[in-house]
Amino acid sequence: MTTTLAAGPTGASAPPRSAPPTRRRARRRELTAQWLFLVPAIAYVLVFFGYPIVKNLVMGFQDYSVRTFVTGEAPWVGLANYAEVVSSGIFQTTVVNTVLFTLGSIAGQFVIGLLFALFFKRRFPLSNVLRSLLLLPWLLPMIAGSAVWRWILDQDGGILNQTLQGVGIIDDPVRWLTSPDIALVAVILVNVWVGIPFNMTLLYSGLQNIPDELYEAGALDGATGWKAFRHITWPSLRPVVNVVLVLGVIYTLKVLDIILGLTGGGPANATQTLATDSYRRSFQEFSFGTGAAVSNVLIVISLVFAVVYLRANRRAEDE
């Protein structure tokens, strides 16, 4: 363990009260010196993370609108914002969309990410190079990814419809981004594409930590292939799996650029999620009060998963 000079043998054992004044002063100076390293970070976290959360909670109870920016007044309205949000027809749609978007994205990213991780675990020529190039979709600006997908998925000029029609899988062009029934599927597809590298990387590092001896011992007992996966790989990977899944949920709940870039939440709110709806209310309708109410719902959901994550992470570290 790291021992600092402050917590050295004398400092730790002698209670400050009985220490002579000079030493007590030296110790206080030492503590101050140590805290100074943290002051900028603490100040930053308080202003840029702490303040927004508190402010958002408060705004949720206020009539915070364009008028507020002129008059500086934001009348207290109790639960009116929440009542308005919940009773608006769109709320149910956004909740259902958020759940479907999250579940669909996670399922796709995770399954494909895991298959990729398992594949790249077999070392072969170029495997490392190929694996690191796979990170590209994750590193690109998401809005750049959305832009190209918007053109790929275009109903008439898009390469996807042209290819599918060319090989005869479909007769008529699919309205990927303009049909209320299909748009959500298309948006999920793009988000899966973005998320695969992240899932693969974490799961790959998890696979690397499973000792080879386990597989050797398993092989002696006849556990190979699917059996080895079920009885050795999966149980050993479980803690990492938990972490990957929970992080995936937290990151997917936040997604804004992909949806705004592809569909803008449409058609007919078919791809509107809690995140995009909060944006719409605050920054397009300048109703910051209801926008805050929606994002407070998002905070609560994220926090629930954050707690799940921290517990999963602790279990992952224990094992």
């Binding site: 840029f48 993370f49 303040y51 959360i53 402010k55 920016f69 936040k254 804004l256 926008g291 994220s302």
Partner: peptide, 22 residues
């Protein structure tokens, strides 16, 4: 402090944007 950092990473950006705008 470390706990706060972990939570900070999980806060949806739109929450921060809402408040930072004002």
């Amino acid at each position: 402090f470390l706990f706060a950092l972990l939570l900070a990473q999980m806060i949806p950006g739109i929450v921060i944007a809402n408040s930072l705008y004002t």
